[in-house]
């Protein structure tokens, strides 16, 4: 246990916690907008930023933030002008970003090995100043996300409608992209650029199996992300495995373990969806159920109750029974 209390582990755990909190918060909006791979795209672009930092002898993290924001704005620009679909826009940047980064690193005279800590994460060697920067950037992301949650939600959920309430869809789309870029830069040291997107998306996939609402999904994803990050770092300290990969595998295991339960919950919710009411339904001759009912259908009677127009149908032996006067109708 002592190893968890060493300064470098404490720094690593703090950096992991803020990454686990902020990545899924932004990721929830990306999933809603069907841009799940955006984090990956920005991550690849970040390689160029890191390489620029190494080449110019400035801070690779700072350059990564700058280049990531430029990349995110480019993705948004390409996407919104409709010149290419979202995924094509992402693909263009993926390859440009990673190729540019590799070229610049070789120009800098560093081998590609210099990139390794950024590609795969290097959380246990994180310095105090880098950790403070991570905490600061993550705080910016979380404050922006939560204070503008209603606006960001509306634009992500139904962009056209949001525009008719006077919201600038472009502004909020760009904001999400910039927040995603900052998050990628934060997570770069934790899980590495190649796995950044996993921490933005997997916890959301886990949480949305169980949630009914957007905010709850987001909070659940943040909890799952933080748990996975802390568990991953702790495991890696004991088992001598790379922390970045361990964090992502723990997150994946979380999804895999909850998946069967999620299926049950989803199935139950689908079973409760109301039956559609057909036009002219009320003109049907009604069919009385022949068999006498030994018990009365009602809340908690044990038969699945499903809404059907203005009444409830009870699923009874594959039939839909609806109370009508003193008897049951077949619906």
């Amino acid at each position: 246990m002592d190893i968890l209390l060493t300064p470098f582990m404490i720094r690593a755990l703090i950096a992991a916690a803020v990454t686990g909190l902020s990545a899924p918060a932004v990721g929830t909006f990306l999933v809603q907008r069907r841009l799940s791979l955006m984090g990956d795209g920005i991550g690849h672009v970040c390689v160029t930023g890191v390489a620029l930092g190494l080449l110019t002898g400035t801070s690779p993290t700072f350059m990564a933030v700058v280049v990531a924001i430029i990349g995110a704005l480019l993705i948004e620009l390409i996407r919104s002008t409709g010149r290419a679909t979202g995924d094509v826009a992402l693909a263009l940047l993926f390859y440009g970003g990673i190729a540019g980064g590799l070229l610049l690193v070789s120009l800098a005279g560093n081998g590609v090995l210099a990139l390794q800590g950024y590609l795969f994460g290097s959380i246990v060697t994180i310095s105090t100043s880098a950790m403070v920067a991570s905490v600061g950037l993550a705080a910016v992301v979380l404050v922006a996300t939560f204070t503008l949650l209603p606006q960001l939600f509306s634009v992500a959920n139904d962009e056209d409608y949001a525009r008719t309430t006077g919201l600038s869809a472009r502004f909020y789309n760009v904001l999400i992209s910039v927040l995603a870029a900052v998050t990628v830069s934060v997570a770069m040291r934790t899980v590495g650029l190649l796995l950044v997107s996993a921490l933005m998306i997997i916890p959301v996939a886990t949480a949305q199996q169980f949630s009914r609402g957007f905010k709850v999904t987001m909070l659940g994803a943040m909890a799952a992300g933080t748990l996975a990050s802390l568990t991953g770092v702790t495991l890696s300290a004991f088992a001598d495995v790379p922390p970045g990969a361990t964090i992502v595998l723990v997150a994946l295991a979380g999804f895999a373990l909850t998946f069967p339960l999620g299926l049950v919950v989803q199935r139950r919710r689908r079973a409760q969806m109301p039956f559609p009411v057909q036009d002219g339904f009320e003109t049907h001759e009604h069919d009385t159920v022949d068999e006498p009912h030994r018990h009365e259908h009602g809340p908690g009677c044990g038969h699945p109750a499903v809404e059907h127009g203005d009444h409830i149908d009870y699923i009874h032996g594959g039939h839909r029974h609806a109370a009508h006067g003193g008897h049951y109708d077949e619906h």
């Binding site: 509306s154 949001a162 006077g166 949305q208 009914r212």
Partner: peptide, 30 residues
Amino acid sequence: WHRLGYVPQRSAIATGVPSTVAEIVGAGRL
């Protein structure tokens, strides 16, 4: 914009991340 109320046809409100009825309706207050 508060004087205008648009009701789109067949919106995609039910796709993607789950959202509650209250969350969707809340967007109308923006």
